[in-house]
């Protein structure tokens, strides 16, 4: 294993930075939709693709995304995990997350999976295995942020 050199003095600094990120038209439309209890995917008539997260431009067809469609209320888990360690300031761990492809959409979007009993990690992981169907659950109080919704198991 590694050996740690003798401790020497360090110079301690704490950096506090703040940002105001421009959301823009596309994400703004998406987050307005969340407030209304809808998940809006951008669509491209040239490629016939529906994107989540939404895009301004379809790089596959080299044409702008020119429409919006409401994503299905259910979808399929494409990748999932139960996060156990390593994060402060998010939801308390252990916590289930997944990339889900909602019905009618061609790409997957990440969010928490609610209602997963994480007391047994193996059982929790099995319950959210890729291929599992889930539905969208909206928060009662919505603020126009990605955490306005999450996924839950169909039998939850």
């Amino acid at each position: 294993m590694s050996t740690e050199p003798a401790a020497r003095p360090v110079l301690h600094q704490e950096l506090t930075l703040s940002y105001d990120y421009a959301i823009g038209e596309v994400a703004g439309t998406f987050f307005d939709g969340l407030r209304d209890g809808k998940i809006l995917a951008s669509t491209c008539s040239a490629s016939d693709l529906a994107y989540l997260p939404p895009r301004a431009y379809c790089e596959r067809s080299f044409e702008p995304c020119d429409g919006w469609t409401e994503a299905g209320e259910e979808g399929v888990i494409e990748a999932s995990t139960v996060v156990v360690r390593g994060f402060e300031g998010k939801r308390p761990t252990p916590v289930a997350i997944a990339f889900v492809r909602l019905d009618g959409v061609d790409s997957a979007i990440a969010n928490y999976v609610d209602g997963v009993d994480c007391s047994d990690i193996d059982a929790a992981v099995a319950s959210i295995a890729p291929g599992t169907r889930v539905r969208v659950a909206f928060a009662e109080e919505r603020e126009g942020r990605i955490t306005d919704f999450s996924f839950e198991l169909l039998d939850a």
């Binding site: 990748a79 999932s80 998010k90 990339f99 990440a110 992981v125 942020r145 955490t147």
Partner: peptide, 22 residues
């Protein structure tokens, strides 16, 4: 992504865990 992904516990660790599930 600041708008869509940063509120989730996504990092290299958890991304690789997601890959591994597939």
């Amino acid at each position: 992504d600041a708008f869509y992904e940063r509120d989730m516990p996504l990092s290299t660790n958890t991304s690789v865990a997601l890959m591994a599930s597939r």
